[in-house]
Amino acid sequence: MATIDKMEQQLRPAETAMAPYPAKYITLASGEKMVVKQVARENCGIVLETVKPLMTVERDFYDIVASRIYSEVLGHMRYRVKDEYVLLGTVDGEIAGVVNGRLVDDKVGMSYHTMTIKQGLRIGAQLFAAKMEYHFDILGQDEVWIVAESPNGFKRWMIEYELVSRPETWHELGGVPTYVLTRELWEKHKAGKCTGRRPVPEELLAKAENPRLPGKYAQIPGFTR
């Protein structure tokens, strides 16, 4: 690692040691196996490339979500966000979706974004559930702050998980009203929302460790890279 000068040290947030997210795999309706795995900071470049084409897709707020993920992950890579993590869903090594978030402190988590690339298989719902699993079951947190940027997100998270409204808390994502997933609600909904198995068989894991950029985007007809 390159030496870090004093100024850079001043600029970086103090980071908390976080238990890593243990990889798991889920059988999708197509019969394909999706591996959900954390991406190391230094490997996040591919996440930037994944969301980049969606930064100009206005429909369903993909532009906002993609642009924000881009800046959050870039911030993570360049040490400008404290305690962030990124989880990737891959199918046969190809990136199918991405989720990210960070810690507010050791008891409170903050959900950032959920982006589905491969549509029609409920991948977004699975990755969101994996993110909540990370906060509650791996990191042992008490609650996660969540916002929705699209009506779809609102339906999926606020209504399906019965999130508690806490408008007095302004979420980092533009200060819009915060909703909270409490441990009690997580325990109530977990069985119906979160699934998957561990450990991931070696062959599957090997593919997930070298993820490929998506070949197509349902949101961008005729896309070529």
Binding site: T27, A29, G192, T195, R197
Partner: peptide, 8 residues
């Protein structure tokens, strides 16, 4: 095993 969640 995942059927209940992926096919809710």
């Amino acid at each position: 095993e995942d059927a209940n969640v992926i096919n809710p």
